[in-house]
């Protein structure tokens, strides 16, 4: 009986992503004050199970946000190296 899952069920895939992003966005600054939009984008752009898991477990949120930031930093470093 997860309200969010119930809300998501009848929505289109794009609407589901939108809802998940709207839910995630205000949570991100608690673990990473910067890059909120990018981190939300990365988490939203995965299979829906991932953002759902993050929303349900705060520990997972911090972990996934860290992964996202690390990936971003690696990408920036790679771009600078070019």
């Amino acid at each position: 009986q997860d309200p969010l899952t119930t809300t998501l069920a009848p929505a289109s895939p794009q609407e589901q992503k939108q809802m998940l992003g709207e839910q995630l966005f205000p949570l991100i600054p608690a673990v990473h004050p910067t890059l909120t939009g990018k981190i939300t984008g990365m988490l939203t752009d995965t299979d829906n199970s991932e953002p759902l898991c993050v929303l349900e477990t705060p520990v997972s949120l911090a972990s996934k946000a860290d992964e996202a930031v690390t990936a971003l930093q690696e990408k920036e470093a790679a771009q600078k190296a070019k």
Binding site: Q14, K17, G21, L24, G37, K38, G41, D45
Partner: peptide, 26 residues
């Protein structure tokens, strides 16, 4: 191509329709 100005990951903005990877110019 505007691939240099928009890059992965797509940025999420509340209230703005999410297009995911469609935001990115391949």
């Amino acid at each position: 191509s505007n691939g240099s100005s928009i890059s992965w990951p797509p940025e999420f903005h509340p209230g703005v329709p999410w297009k995911g990877l469609q935001n990115i110019d391949p």
